[in-house]
Design a protein around this nucleic acid. Structure first.
Length: 425
RNA sequence: CGGGAUAUAGUGUAAUGGUAGCACGAAUCCUUUGGGAGGAUUUAGUCCCAGUUCGAGUCUGGGUAUCCCGACCA
């Protein structure tokens, strides 16, 4: 993509009303736009990142049998009355509205109810189970107070998968697979080492739910981390009894702030009972379906990535999330032909590049923008590099700089694009 | 929802109750191109509604928005 044609602009200063680092950087670099408190639009660069994250999630969900669908945001009051979750005294963050004829509607804050009801049409026999539908969809929650930039808003994207299983055993087996898949997702975006499976309150059907907490000062949750066992306990269930259950000792735990990037929990038969979702087994006997739900907030994950991977100059995207694989800069009119060629060669090789071809921007401006936008690899074509017959390559994270011949470079970038783990410098 | 604070140009900031200024941005022209370059000429603003006052960005009341702390986060 030509940067001269990118309509978003970077800015030197963040709006004064933003405090969260993720929002400051994402707004300055032109990834998101704040529409109102807790409501952010995704601009082209931001959408590319969000889509990358969504693709990583899709890949892992599909790998464990997930099937993507797309449910409605508009919700039927009567469906939620079945579980008593329409009542404002039970769920206080509904956005409710009305049809012209006066009937009440809600904007979905989660989707257990409509999906359970829907699945009645498709689940009758043991042959129909298990089933793992999921979606990536906008949720609405009328939070009393929003904060933390794009990490906690009133309108946000959520990947929610729901499992429908025949029995506890089948449920537990999937639950473990989902846990592993979540681990892979967070590792893919570079957060594997600091994201802990965290024991949290489980609700009415299991003792604990599992959260995926990424250790970060900007987080809103307090967790107690066992570095050795790679697990953690949420403050909400942190007591002697829990520690005993989990075989943990107080001394091995460290208190940390963390961002909840994912949450999985067992639902038992709460929803299948409410909607009479049951199936007939091999012997003709009826049983309620055992359910679970598995959430990840892609937008929140994006915010967490920015919180963790950034420095005083800007964002430092992990390769898997980056809006482009490389950022090509041409310095000065005299080199535009050579830079154009590098850009075209990259495109032909399938390497996605953002090409800063702007004629009216100075070198310093281009460097500053490149640092701010945070694409992992920066390529420079300038009179200096042409003199050597090479292209300069800089790693945004390590700051390492190397001069390479173009052919050699393109070859390496192709490899890099397929396997982000390969180190160029 | 309880408590606290703020609101001036696209962005960031000034202005004893007395001519709304500066920087960045944007526009035009010229010179520039390895870390936000220089010059010239432009552009654009007091959140909304009342009130006090000869006069309100500034004081008073109400509204709205935004932020912070806490509570909440099924």
């Amino acid at each position: 993509m030509l940067q001269s044609g990118l309509f978003t602009k970077t800015r030197r200063e963040a709006p004064k009303d933003e405090v969260a680092n993720n929002a400051k950087l994402l707004i300055r670099a032109g990834f998101v736009h704040k529409e109102m408190a807790g409501v952010y639009s995704y601009l082209p660069l931001g959408l590319r990142v969000l889509n990358n994250i969504n693709e990583i999630i899709r890949k892992e969900m599909d790998a464990i049998g997930g099937q993507e669908l797309f449910l409605t945001a508009l919700q039927d009051k009567s469906v939620w009355e079945k579980t008593n979750r329409w009542d404002d005294s039970v769920v206080d963050n509904w956005f409710k509205t009305k049809l012209k004829n006066g009937s009440e509607l809600g904007l979905g804050f989660t989707h257990e109810e409509p999906l359970t009801k829907l699945m009645r049409e498709h689940i009758n026999s043991f042959r129909d189970l298990p089933a793992y539908p999921y979606q990536i969809q906008t949720k609405f929650r009328n939070e009393i107070r929003v904060k933390s930039g794009i990490m906690r808003g009133r309108e946000f994207l959520m990947k929610d998968l729901y499992s429908f299983s025949k029995n506890e055993e089948e449920h537990n087996s999937f639950y473990e697979k989902a846990k592993e898949a979540y681990g892979k997702i967070f590792s893919s975006v570079g957060l594997g080492d600091i994201t802990y499976v965290t024991f949290a309150s489980g609700g009415s059907f299991s003792k604990y739910s599992h959260e995926f907490q990424t250790v970060c000062e900007a987080g809103e949750d307090i967790i107690y981390v066992s570095e050795d066992k790679k697990i953690a306990v949420n403050k909400e269930v942190y007591d002697e009894k829990t520690l005993e259950d989990l075989g943990l000792k107080k001394e091995e735990l460290e208190e940390r702030k963390a961002i909840e990037v994912g949450n999985i929990f067992s639902l038992g038969t709460k929803f299948s009972d409410a909607f009479n979702l049951d199936y007939t087994d091999e012997n003709g006997e009826k049983h309620p379906v055992i359910m679970g739900s598995y959430g990840i907030g892609p937008g929140r994950l994006m915010g967490a990535i920015v919180e963790i991977f950034s420095d005083e100059r800007g964002i430092v995207w992990p390769e898997a999330a980056a809006p482009f694989a490389v950022h090509l800069l041409s310095l000065g009119d005299s080199v535009s032909k050579t830079a154009d060629k590098v850009y075209n060669d990259l495109r032909e090789a399938g390497v996605e590049a953002l090409y800063d071809d702007r004629k009216d921007a100075t070198a310093g401006e281009k460097f500053a923008d490149a640092d701010l936008i945070g694409i992992p690899w920066r390529l420079v074509v300038s009179p200096k590099t042409i003199e050597q017959g090479k292209v300069e390559v800089k790693n945004r994270r390590t700051g390492e700089i190397k001069m390479m011949e173009e052919k050699e470079l393109v070859k390496l970038l192709i490899t890099l694009n397929v396997k982000p783990a390969v180190k160029l410098c």
